[in-house]
Design a protein around this nucleic acid. Sequence first.
DNA 1: TTGTAAGCGTTATCAC
DNA 2: GTGATAACGCTTACAA
Lengths: 343, 343
Amino acid sequence: MKFGAITIKDIARELGISASAVSKALKDSYEISEKTKKLVLECAKKHNYQPNPMARSLKQGNSKALGIIIPTIDNNFFSQVINGVESVAYSKGYNIIMTQTHESYELELSNTDLLTIRAIDGLLISLSTETKDISHLKRLHDQGLPIVFFDRVSNEINTHKIIADNFRGAYEATTNLIKAGYRNIAHLTSSINVSITAERLKGYEQALEENGIPVKEHYIKYCPQGGKDVDEVQQALNELLDAPDKPDAIFTATDRVTTTTLALLHRMHVKIPTDIALLGFTNTQLADVLNPPLSQVFQPGFEMGKKATEMLIQLIEARRPVEEFETVVMPAQIFMRDSTKRP
Amino acid sequence: MKFGAITIKDIARELGISASAVSKALKDSYEISEKTKKLVLECAKKHNYQPNPMARSLKQGNSKALGIIIPTIDNNFFSQVINGVESVAYSKGYNIIMTQTHESYELELSNTDLLTIRAIDGLLISLSTETKDISHLKRLHDQGLPIVFFDRVSNEINTHKIIADNFRGAYEATTNLIKAGYRNIAHLTSSINVSITAERLKGYEQALEENGIPVKEHYIKYCPQGGKDVDEVQQALNELLDAPDKPDAIFTATDRVTTTTLALLHRMHVKIPTDIALLGFTNTQLADVLNPPLSQVFQPGFEMGKKATEMLIQLIEARRPVEEFETVVMPAQIFMRDSTKRP
DNA sequence: TTGTAAGCGTTATCAC
DNA sequence: GTGATAACGCTTACAA
């Protein structure tokens, strides 16, 4: 095998015993004498023996690897998720094979292939904004691959799901803006394809309705690419700012959209909150550093990653097929700052 | 094997031919008749046959997987690197198994184990700030594992390395500050353990010297944890701001340190650039969004990731041991903004 | 307590 | 052209 690695056979030969004895000694089997165990352990240590994972996987039919597909690493929310996933996976002896879709359906397809071709024991996935058809995932799921969805989930597959409380987060964010004195509140959101968009939209609408503020269709702007394309955000902002009933606040729906909006407003010399107030779903570390600091809805990415991984490993290690699937909803937190108060 | 996957044997049985015939047909061998090939291909497609990667790896002695160890994903520079790595690796049929060290030597050790235990064909690594002893990597390298260092490299292992032009970047950044009228320029940097720290320090010192400005030891502050620990940055800032010869500018050495410094200065109500100017090595997407926008030294993470991966794959696929190792230096770019001009 | 042998899925070698 | 066989490294009945 590669780079002169020591195998069980080498140890067996050196000690003049059989390979199976070595194998058993290494897993501290009761059928092996203490003396032999000692010898084997020493020899293994001496040569820095590492079992070949591929041979072991082949034999045992699992790979001890988890696949994770996220839109982009370049988003504080998802990098927190990864941290959560790592913290659980490593402690249970699983490796992580991660890929990004960059919000592209094509990439989601090819990455799914790559991952499953590499034989993962289970898959964590947050759908890309472009994804409408999930038959690639259905096929895998039908074949028995354990899948857990997080954040951007699909209703077409019956399995565990972890989501943030998008409705409540959006509802409270909007309510906060209303309480702060804004009434012309626009909603700049992501692609209509992903689950979170609809949920946040509902929260926004309900908050307006409960406060007797009519929902205006032209205050709701979608970014089909999820803000990946700066132009789509720019166009939405232009339409909002040029409207005769120009909004006095914007509620942005995702980290990416929020960040891009901030950058564009800055470039356009639109002052926050003097010209327009901003409150967004985001997880940006820099929210506090901005001047004025950004009011935000914080999603617990780390906890979501942890929970999703726990559930996935549970699915993988379950003896029999799981009957009951859960959808876990995690609360989101609002940070409302003075900077969002009416000047 | 797992979730009812079809194997070569199944196809052989279904078609009433031997497994080896199927194997050959699938790789379009010249010794198989067109008719049989057609049959096999059809059958394979019908059952959605995927070769078992573990069996193949076991047989061929490689895993078609690259390991990558970075300090943290939560840093725009490293996430750009990942993107660069992905773009090359996938196109050459390699998967990526990534882990973070969170700047901890312990984690670097255990992650290195995890990765190599999983049998990777090669390793990309950027050292953690805590790492002084690299014998864990030396061992692997001696055993023949191809390794490419990027950004934070070690001189103790002779292999390919990719670095940003840290000296030049720091030199130019400092020169820019001097030209903008600052003379009391502090340098807030990372751990003394990582290679980039020394290089940037040299650039800073040389720029001062060439302009006849004496280097003051108490203007140079290290963050042993690389800014992971907010307190170490806070303490450094306190000492700088409380000095009788309080600096009028700070040159920060890394993304993390820069971000933390920004957050702290904001919290301390220290105005930029009125109270103190700031110019940092960083890659933060939000540099433009800040008010005032941050002057920065931009490192080409994507290109580094690409280049490092190309070199690693070249090492892996080289027939014979490589004799000549390269150290590639990539230019860094300075973005100096009006906001750094003297008010 | 230890050894033998079969087998995981694939491929390479060699017969036929 | 096709098939049998061995081998990659490891595990596990079962035999000794």
